[in-house]
């Protein structure tokens, strides 16, 4: 997994609550057996005017000029500003893969859906929960200033705005550590092979019906 330490980047605002993973990456793109290449189809139904299918040349498709990511001032954005319950719906990890492939490394929202939140950390994306008032203020500032950028520092757990104001955020210490170091969960868990074996042996004795087949 790619490390995340700090980032300064353009912020794109997505002013909708309950953005679901079907909207982030529609199902027809889930047929891929690869982990990459989902970026051009991020928010496909909002981003393009035609019906997207796998294998299309996306550069030839008609863009929806009203969709925020199609506006020139947000090109190159790596920070997504979102509303409550972002990432609800299916468990598809294709959603963070698409966000990452597009270039997003940070998502700011008042709340996230559990599975999506978790999936972000496994892919080097930092989802940050901020209180609703701070999120409202950021939406207003982004709208007012073209080229609005934020600096996000995971080590310091701090966000700095262009005017120099700073916001602190909470992050689970274990997840922070894994992101900062770019650590692979499986490698970490396999350091505890003995504990897993011991649990398994005890459980097999207590509840043998769980180990049939």
């Amino acid at each position: 997994m790619e490390k995340f330490t700090a980032l300064e980047a353009i912020v794109a605002p997505l002013d909708r609550s309950n953005v679901d993973t079907d909207a982030i990456i529609p199902k027809q793109f889930l047929k891929s057996i690869r982990r990459s290449g989902f970026g051009p189809n991020l928010f496909d139904e909002w981003r393009y005017l035609d019906q997207g299918e796998p294998g299309m040349d996306n550069s030839q498709r008609p863009l929806n000029p009203d969709f925020v990511l199609n506006q020139s001032r947000y090109q190159g954005a790596q920070i997504l500003l979102a509303r409550e319950n972002f990432g609800c719906g299916s468990s598809r990890e294709h959603a963070p893969w698409a966000l990452l492939d597009y270039g997003f490394r940070v998502i700011l929202a008042p709340s996230f859906a559990d599975i999506f939140f978790n999936n972000c950390f496994k892919n080097g994306i930092l989802p940050i929960v901020l209180d609703a008032a701070s999120i409202d203020r950021l939406f207003a500032e982004v709208a007012a200033h073209e080229g609005y950028r934020l600096r996000v520092d995971l080590e310091q757990q701090q966000i700095t705005t262009p005017s120099g104001a700073s916001l602190t955020f909470e992050v689970d210490p274990f997840r922070r550590h894994c992101l900062l170091e770019g650590l692979d969960d499986i490698g970490l868990t396999l350091q505890h092979v003995d504990a897993i074996r011991a649990y398994e042996a005890q459980r097999r004795a207590e509840a043998p019906w769980l180990f049939r087949g």
Binding site: E93, I115, N119, K122, T189, L190
Partner: peptide, 21 residues
């Protein structure tokens, strides 16, 4: 019973465990 992402599918396949709070 919970839904998991693909990284966790790989993690459970490899370790029989899920990292959870």
């Amino acid at each position: 019973a919970h839904g998991i992402g693909t990284s966790e599918v790989e993690h459970v396949l490899a370790t029989q465990c899920l990292i959870q709070k």
